[in-house]
Write a protein that binds this DNA or RNA. Structure first.
Lengths: 328, 328
DNA sequence: CTGAAAGCGCTTACAG
DNA sequence: CTGAAAGCGCTTACAG
């Protein structure tokens, strides 16, 4: 920087002013140009460590994730966060903790040492968490998870609306006997989607038939078994809302095995919008998408948007959009 | 830090020595303990910006990726790089450029400003690249890609060995009429896997039958068409090596449609090991895995391992392991 | 064994 | 409009 100043024949301060386009100091157009060309000629590059030190702040945002490649979900959250950070001229410090408490602790310490502006704490599937205490030392937002007492800001998908929408698209096609193959796991997704299913039926004046609500392991095998069960009913459903796309995949197997056509004989709607599955089933699966990209992006926007103040506690809920394909 | 020194009754230098476990200065056990407890009590956390500044180096490694969530592949590379970086007490600065030249330029500039130790430049599928010139200003290694003139260090998968292995496992089961459904794309994967296929056949003394080598678009549809074609042959193959798992998925569709059993009537081996596909086909698909995690990990190890010197130019080739399931 | 001091590369009041 | 100077929080010879 001193070299640039010398070459341009100005002081350090002037170089700093023009490089950072500070308007507080009026620098003549001529000097400005001289400085720029000197910087160019010398290949000057500002040292961010020095800048961060003197300013007592960095442009870093920490992102701690409990998974990074086990599902496409985590990747989408990271991508959303990364894009939003980039747009705000911030840089993501990504740590993959594999849900290991010690790794989380280390990661957060490291982030704090780097004077991060804030931390995003994310999980690959929607759930309740008790995040490490260190997280509270800095502005933070939970993404795809939430604190039991809602004492931290969080961004989560709207499972209820998702379940309602899934059921609604089926109702809109005239279906009245709509099954819901839920998951045996206990999770916000399980309870939320069920509530949405019931709300949609109720709003349409359709009485719930207990025979039509099953719970299975949320995998292909579970969907297959559920399909067989449903087909064995005295009056089988005309449409099925599956907890997720993998369950729907198993449901396809069972229906095809029994010679049922989709959507001719039975309409199907899934959840998750896992491209590799939903896009490749035959027929391609209509489903509800989890808004992972949006969750990540919203998370960092909340972190950065608060005019300097930390984001407020409480859950922000994001819509799960319907992705039409050809299974209904 | 001054506060810690005061509380412990020592100088700044001493605090620095004990915090960093420097052995050059012998500090008594007693002072050491006093310093640690003072640091503890004050909740002292070292400021990395200051440390990086004075040391003229950071513990950052830049990772520029052309994709981050479009496929699981990129995620695995990032995870591998992240784990290796972490093991060496380094932090990943991840930039997602979506293959946009300007974004790449910006990302690299930003990384350079942060005094990164080096940069990993990665692509989500194996290919030749002409990386931005700025990359040469700092130690770097290409991951899953390579420079046309091999003037940069690179880590890539061994496509030839992969193709050879895929063919070999089929030969080992006694198959002699082995088809290869290749991709119409021009890529290292296409040429490499074909060479591997031929090498394996030649080594086994099996003459290549031109009818058995097809090229299709590397997707489900392509695999489906290839399956029909192969079945229409006067003497159909008894085994098929598919360019990738999506092609294998289409191949399954065609074979099942024609009532063929896998592997009873025809054995199949895929490539890529895309969990969601390979693990969920019926029967589960035996395939060759692309070593993305390993590529990422090797990349940062090369960057860091060179005793301070930049890694040497040239391609490092990594094995593609066979993943047995139930399709042969 | 421990301390005083210089210096890393910047930014920013404060003078002029 | 521009410059001299202090200071950000550290590390590391160099003395003692």
């Amino acid at each position: 920087m001193q070299d640039v100043a010398d070459l341009a024949g100005v002081s350090l301060a002037t170089v700093s002013f023009v490089i950072n386009a500070k308007t507080s100091a009026k620098v003549s157009e001529a000097t400005r140009a001289r400085v720029w060309s000197a910087a160019q000629e010398l290949g000057y590059r500002t040292n961010r460590a020095a800048k961060n030190l003197v300013q007592g702040a960095s442009t870093f945002i920490g992102l701690v994730a409990d998974a990074i490649a086990s599902t496409p979900f985590a990747g989408q959250i990271i991508r959303g966060a990364q894009d939003a950070a980039w747009q705000n001229r911030h840089i993501l410090l990504v740590a993959n903790t594999e849900a290991n408490g010690e790794a989380e602790q280390d990661a957060i310490t490291m982030m704090l040492e780097h004077q991060v502006t804030g931390i995003i704490y994310s999980t690959w599937y929607h759930r309740e968490v008790t995040p490490p205490a260190a997280l509270r030392e800095v502005p933070c937002v939970l993404v795809n998870c939430y604190a039991a007492d809602d004492s931290l800001p969080a961004v989560v998908p709207d499972e209820v609306q998702g379940g309602r929408t899934a059921t609604q698209v089926l109702l809109d096609r005239g279906h009245r006997r709509i099954a819901f193959v839920n998951s045996t796991e206990s999770a916000p997704a399980t309870t939320g989607r069920l509530r949405g299913y019931r709300a949609a039926l109720a709003a349409a004046g359709v009485a719930e038939d207990p025979d039509l609500v099953l719970t299975v392991r949320p995998e292909q095998e579970g969907g297959y078994e559920a399909g067989l069960l449903l087909l064995g009913l005295p009056t089988p459903p005309t449409a099925v809302f599956c907890y997720n796309d993998r369950v729907a995949m198993g449901m396809y197997d069972a229906l095809h095995e029994r010679g049922m056509r989709i959507p001719g004989d039975i309409a199907i709607v899934g959840f998750d919008n896992q491209e590799v599955i939903a896009g490749h089933l035959r027929p391609p699966l209509s489903t509800i998408a989890l808004p992972h990209y949006e969750l990540g992006a919203r998370g960092v926007r909340m972190l950065l948007g608060g005019d300097g103040s930390a984001p407020a506690p409480g859950r922000t809920i994001v819509d799960c959009p319907y992705i039409p394909r050809h299974s209904l």
